[in-house]
Every structure is written in structure tokens, then in C-alpha cells.
């Protein structure tokens, strides 16, 4: 499931069922992941949380076991340390708690559990200059696919061009212009052979693309391919 593939109705229903709690664990993970990358979905979830929050009052209050606070404090020590490692994967956490790095890790994890897992699958999330996840790139030896996480188009008089820079190469290879409508690009292995460490970037170019064969405009989004199998 990609965030962009959802219709508004599906988005609304998923957000509602996520908050209601009826979704199974795998779907919850996907919704949490999608929400991390899709602010509209995250807003829907927040709206539903607000709408249904009064139902929390229907649970009968009950005092917790007396030692519970000490246990919590023990887990949180030492105070300065970041969150301790947990038994369960962190992608159960509601979406907006993720940083972009965690998002990339979560995507890798999702690809990992998606059966069957083809060998040598790679991915990256292209981040904006403000570290916002904007595009996802999935790749294997057969080629590469770019999809928009938050659909956004270039200014009317500009085009967005996709590039790949293999490690060690001095000049990037153009993978073509990003279609304004779909925001999706598929590249076959005959154009580029994806490999881990390859830099993927999107630049702003004149309509029709860079006239020189090299990027001429600013880099809008950038990311580096990594194996979907390591964590």
C-alpha cells in the first residue's frame, strides 16, 4: 500500500479503523508507516482521535499496581539516554513520532516482511532540503521505481528530473523527467543498474529537462539506495 494509492474514502476509513482499533497488526503497521509519510492521512487520524476521545471516559478507572511507576522510571533510566531498545519494533508507534531516518528503516522493514522477498531489493526515501520524506525509490537488479509520497508538482514553467549517481561515478545519469500527473517513474536495468550506495536525486530543470545532460538546477530531493534487507 502506498500513501498515494489511497482514495480519499479509503484514507478516511483506514484512519477511522486505525483509531477504533479494529485493524490487524500488519495493517496497523502499514497505516502508521503511510501516515508518517502522508500528512493528510496523519491529519485524518488526529481528527478521528479527537472525535472518538470522549469514549475513553467509558472505561472504568482503576488504580494500577503500586510498583508500576518504579518500573517505568527504571526503564527510562538513565535520564539522558534516548529511548531504550524495546522488544517490539518501533513502527508500532504512531506515525508522527518518526524521524526521516526511522521512516527509511521502517520502509526497509516493510519491504522485508512483504512476501516473497526478492533478493537484492533496495530502497531509499528521498528527503527534501528540510528532511521531509517526499519520494520513495524501490529498486532491484531489474530496475528502479520512483513514487511520490506527498504528490507535489514542479512550478508550471519547470520540470523535475530524476538522476542516479553510482558510487565512484563523477557525473549522474539522467533517469528522465518526472511526469507531472502520476509522479511515478519506472526505469529498466538497461538505463541504470541499481546498486547499494547509489545516490538518487531530483533536480529542478527547464521544461523538457536539462539541456546539458547534467543537472543545472537545484537539488530538491536526495537519497541513497540501501539494501532493504539490513537494518
Amino acid at each position: 500500500m502506498s500513501a498515494t494509492a489511497m482514495t480519499p474514502e479509503e484514507r478516511q476509513a483506514l484512519a477511522a479503523e486505525y483509531v477504533l482499533g479494529t485493524l490487524d497488526a500488519a495493517t496497523v503497521r502499514m497505516v502508521a508507516l503511510a501516515a508518517a509519510l502522508d500528512p493528510v492521512l496523519a491529519d485524518e487520524i488526529a481528527d478521528w482521535e479527537m472525535a472518538l476521545a470522549p469514549l475513553q471516559d467509558l472505561a472504568t478507572p482503576e488504580a494500577p499496581p503500586p510498583e508500576l511507576w518504579d518500573r517505568i522510571a527504571g526503564t527510562l533510566e538513565p535520564a539522558a539516554a534516548p529511548l531504550p531498545a524495546r522488544r517490539k519494533a518501533s513502527w508500532f508507534w504512531p506515525a508522527w513520532s518518526f524521524g526521516a531516518t526511522v521512516v527509511a528503516g521502517s520502509l526497509a522493514a516493510i519491504l522485508l516482511v512483504r512476501p516473497p522477498a526478492p533478493a537484492e531489493r533496495m530502497m531509499t526515501v528521498l528527503l527534501s532540503s528540510r528532511d521531509q520524506p517526499a519520494w520513495v525509490v524501490e529498486a532491484d537488479r531489474a530496475g528502479l521505481r520512483l513514487a511520490a509520497l506527498n504528490p507535489r508538482a514542479a512550478p508550471a514553467d519547470r520540470a523535475m528530473q530524476l538522476w542516479a549517481l553510482p558510487q565512484g561515478a563523477t557525473a549522474p545519469t539522467s533517469l528522465g523527467l518526472i511526469p507531472r500527473e502520476s509522479g511515478e517513474v519506472r526505469v529498466s536495468a538497461s538505463q541504470i543498474r541499481p546498486e547499494p550506495g547509489m545516490l538518487i536525486e531530483i533536480t529542478l530543470e527547464p521544461p523538457g529537462g536539462s539541456p546539458t545532460g547534467r543537472p543545472t538546477g537545484p537539488v530538491l530531493f536526495i537519497g541513497r539506495l540501501s539494501p532493504a534487507t539490513g537494518t
Binding site: 482499533g21 475513553q56 467509558l58 472505561a59 472504568t60 478507572p61 482503576e62 488504580a63 494500577p64 499496581p65 508500576l68 518500573r71 517505568i72 526503564t75 527510562l76 529511548l83 531504550p84 524495546r86
Partner: peptide
């Protein structure tokens, strides 16, 4: 007390509810 009640309503098991409140505070 309110939060433990919410967890216990879902889990109906005080040990599990304590786990949930623990996880939640983390």
C-alpha cells in the same frame, strides 16, 4: 488511575494492562 482503566478495559488483565501503561509512559 484513568489510564490504567483504559488499558484494563482493553486487556482485562491487570498484568497486561500494567505492561501497556509502562509502554505508554515510555
Amino acid at each position: 488511575t484513568r489510564l490504567f482503566g483504559i488499558a484494563n478495559a482493553v486487556l482485562r488483565d491487570r498484568d497486561a494492562a500494567a505492561d501497556a501503561v509502562h509502554d505508554a509512559f515510555v
